[in-house]
Amino acid sequence: MLRKFSLFFHPVEIDLSFSPFALRLENETYQIMKASDENIADLLKLEQEVYFGRTPWGRFSFKSELKKHANSLYLVVYQGSTLVGFVGMRMQAQEGHITNIAVKPSFQRRGIGEFLLRTMIEMARKNHAVQMTLEVRSDNYNAQSLYRKLGFKDNFIRKNYYITEQADAVNMLKKLTDKEQEEVN
């Protein structure tokens, strides 16, 4: 408890540094790197594929989020020149919040989404976060299953969170404790 109060009154500077690297999953090689403005066209194209022709986040939203270097981290995953996934996280008041995550449909169920989430969870822990949160469509059962596998629990329902579709979102929460970290490793 003392640690929480100490961090509240003397906040630790957020370190979201990330070095690009190659990853092998299921005999495939992927490049993981920080997202930049050069990736926006690919991000929009991937969103259209994942969200059935829609782009919940437009060019302006991505451009705005990618400028928030002090407390946000966005990662992209490429196989060759094809963007196959991305994730975004914002750090705020000892909380890591997943702002966006998507994996190309033909690359789903290969461990890419799980890898990206685990990476962000570790980044949040490194920055003294005590919890992680995210929102997911209430009818996106596959994503909810992955989040639960990683220890996220239903927190509450946000009615009409997705305004254009008039769809609800489930706010999910994962507590980040030292005991939990030992169990995951």
Rank of each mutant, 00 (worst) to 15 (best):
N171K: 00
E165T: 11
N160P: 01
I157G: 11
A167Y: 08
K153R: 14
R158S: 00
K153S: 09
Y147P: 08
I157P: 00
K153F: 08
Y147T: 04
S138H: 07
D139H: 09
I157L: 10
I163R: 03
N155I: 02
G151I: 04
F152A: 07
N155V: 04
N142M: 11
E165Y: 09
R158Q: 10
Y162F: 07
K149N: 04
D168R: 14
N171V: 07
K153A: 13
D154N: 15
N160K: 15
D154W: 07
Q144L: 09
I157T: 15
D139G: 04
N171R: 02
N142C: 12
F152Y: 13
I157K: 08
N140M: 12
D154Y: 12
M172E: 05
N140Q: 14
L146P: 04
Y161Q: 00
D154F: 08
R158I: 02
M172S: 04
I163G: 00
Y161E: 03
R148V: 13
N171W: 00
K159W: 07
S138D: 09
R148F: 12
L150C: 12
Y162H: 02
Y161W: 06
Y141E: 05
V170G: 00
Y161K: 03
I157S: 06
Q166M: 09
D168K: 11
Y162T: 02
Q144H: 03
M172T: 10
N160V: 10
Y141D: 06
D154C: 03
A169M: 05
M172L: 14
N142R: 15
R158M: 06
K149W: 09
A167L: 14
F152V: 12
A167F: 05
R148E: 15
A167Q: 15
G151E: 05
F156T: 14
K149P: 09
V170N: 02
A143Y: 01
A167M: 13
A167T: 11
N160Y: 04
A167R: 09
S145W: 15
N160H: 12
N142S: 11
T164P: 08
T164D: 15
Q144I: 01
A143M: 10
Q166E: 09
E165F: 08
F152H: 06
D139S: 13
N142T: 13
Y162L: 01
R158A: 03
L150H: 07
Y162W: 05
Y162S: 01
K149M: 02
K149Y: 07
A143G: 06
K149C: 10
V170W: 02
Y141G: 03
